[in-house]
Write a protein that binds this DNA or RNA. Sequence first.
DNA 1: AACACTGACAACCGCCGTTCT
DNA 2: AAGAACGGCGGTTGTCAGTGT
Length: 305
Amino acid sequence: MHGKREQEEYIRKGPWKEEEDEILRNHVKKYGPRDWSSIRSKGLLQRTGKSCRLRWVNKLRPNLKNGCKFSVEEERVVIELQAQFGNKWAKIASNLSGRTDNDVKNFWSSRQKRLARILQTSSSATTSKSQKNNAKVPNYLDFPTFEAPKFSSSSEGEPSSKPQSCSLPCIENSEVIKMVRLPDLIKSEMPSSGTSHVGQESTLFEAYKSTEEIAFPKIPELNNDVGSQDLLCRIDEPSFIEDFGPLDASEFGIGPENHIGFPFFDPSVSCRVGIDSFKNNDDFFDDFPVDMFDNIEPPAIPPNL
DNA sequence: AACACTGACAACCGCCGTTCT
DNA sequence: AAGAACGGCGGTTGTCAGTGT
């Protein structure tokens, strides 16, 4: 079917076959992990040098932890190094034995997606809320609400290291059940960790005392998702927000050109400390990543504030 | 049972710096 | 010195399996 020239230029793509892997392994055994392009020029494989290198690095290299989920310790390292170096996946991976840059990248990407979805769900919950309550709730209350992560029931991987006290009351998922003041919600839903962040009156909410209520979504039922539960369990640790990693709002399709105009705090101020270290409840919002609210429609500021 | 959603993973693409000719 | 080839890296996309509705 193909002419000779066509045959020569044909480049195979897609999933690798076992035979191809074997050829690649043999090549590396003979010549070492280099001269990737020669694999094709010698007619051994109809793959590009790049493709061969990638296959070797990500799948065939010895001592890879293929199919093994990130341990809690690995997760911690990734989070720390990502905060330190940014998206330098190769650099981060070099600190994790048996992990490739692709592994780390995929791990981080999943994590970010999960977070993005949490935020998105929360803001849509707010939108529907505000439509419902448009008549009685001033729109300056339409700041995003925060939904606890949605937990899958899968419990693969190593046993969770989180404490039992993590379990929260089972509440139906992702729906605004009632309008509550946030401090009250924190009071009633936070794990009882003995920390003192609960019950402190918020200056933020002081501003809305006349309204008494803000939107807050239901907290979903908690199952055994290691990552999500771990995040929730650590919500009252000093490093919680920091560990969540720097959030770039652009990752959620949010551009840098807009910023929130909440009357009650300055989004340019980033203060990443634990939830239990609130001096006042303004800190609650300060503790979210600084970009988190970027591009959210600035609510109209009531003239009397 | 069918469908939708999600996470995990594999692989490709484009850019860029380095090396080779 | 300049252009081509190569290799490394980060971003993105596609696929598949598991789970929920």
